[in-house]
Each structure stands twice: as structure tokens, then as C-alpha cells.
Computed example of a mutant assay.
Amino acid sequence: MRIIITEHAKKRLKDLRQEGITIADITAAATNIPGRIPTATRFRGFIARSGRVFDIVAKDIPGGRLVITIIGK
């Protein structure tokens, strides 16, 4: 499945709260969500390689899985 990360999500990775979360972490997390996501939904409790816990908001679109934003803990 193709993972599409919005510019907003990429910009948020520069914030202090999301420090230590990489694009690879986001891609792995989005890939591991089973099933189809018809509406934007928050998925909680992913762990980055750095140890930082984060949530993602994602939904499925015809082009793949769209990651709308990242929320670091």
C-alpha cells in the first residue's frame, strides 16, 4: 500500500513535541494499521525507533493511505 504523508505532517516533525519521529517511523506505523479507513481516524500508541510514543491521523484515499498529521507524546 502506498503511504502519502501531507506537508502538514512533515512540518510537524520539526516541532519539539515530535522530536525523534522519522518518516520511516510514520510509514511503518501507517502500514501496520489493518483494514480500510474510510474517514480520518486517530490511531494511538505507536513507538518510534527513538522511543518516542506518537499518534497518527490517517484515512484511505484512492491513491493510498493518507497520513494527515502526527501527534507526539
Rank of each mutant, 00 (worst) to 15 (best):
D25A: 07
D25F: 07
I26L: 13
I26V: 11
I26D: 04
T27D: 03
T27H: 04
T27V: 13
T27I: 15
A28Y: 03
A28D: 06
A28L: 04
A28H: 08
A28T: 04
A29P: 03
A29N: 08
A29K: 05
A29Y: 01
A30G: 01
A30E: 01
A30C: 02
T31D: 12
T31L: 09
N32L: 10
N32V: 07
N32S: 15
N32W: 06
N32Y: 02
I33E: 00
I33K: 02
I33A: 10
I33D: 06
I33Y: 07
I33C: 03
P34N: 12
P34A: 10
G35E: 11
G35R: 08
G35H: 10
G35Q: 09
R36K: 15
R36I: 15
I37T: 06
I37Y: 08
I37G: 03
I37V: 15
P38T: 05
P38S: 13
P38G: 11
P38K: 12
T39C: 06
T39Q: 14
A40Y: 04
A40N: 05
T41E: 10
T41M: 11
T41H: 11
R42L: 12
R42P: 06
F43K: 01
R44Q: 14
R44M: 14
R44W: 07
R44Y: 09
G45K: 05
G45M: 12
F46Q: 00
F46A: 05
F46P: 04
F46M: 12
I47A: 07
I47K: 00
I47D: 04
A48I: 02
A48E: 11
R49N: 15
R49S: 15
R49C: 13
R49Q: 15
S50M: 14
S50K: 14
G51V: 13
G51Q: 10
R52N: 05
V53Q: 12
V53M: 11
V53D: 02
V53G: 01
V53P: 03
V53Y: 09
F54R: 07
F54I: 09
F54S: 11
F54A: 06
D55A: 14
D55R: 09
I56V: 10
I56F: 01
I56A: 07
I56N: 05
I56W: 08
I56L: 15
I56K: 11
V57A: 00
V57Y: 06
V57N: 03
V57L: 02
V57Q: 11
V57W: 00
A58L: 02
A58Q: 02
A58C: 11
K59H: 14
D60F: 04
D60H: 12
I61F: 02
P62W: 07
P62A: 03
P62M: 03
P62R: 12
G63C: 01
G63S: 09
G63P: 00
G63A: 13
G63R: 11
G63Y: 07
G64K: 04
G64H: 08
R65D: 08
L66D: 09
L66Y: 10
L66N: 13
L66K: 06
L66W: 08
V67H: 04
V67I: 15
V67R: 00
V67K: 05
V67Q: 09
I68P: 15
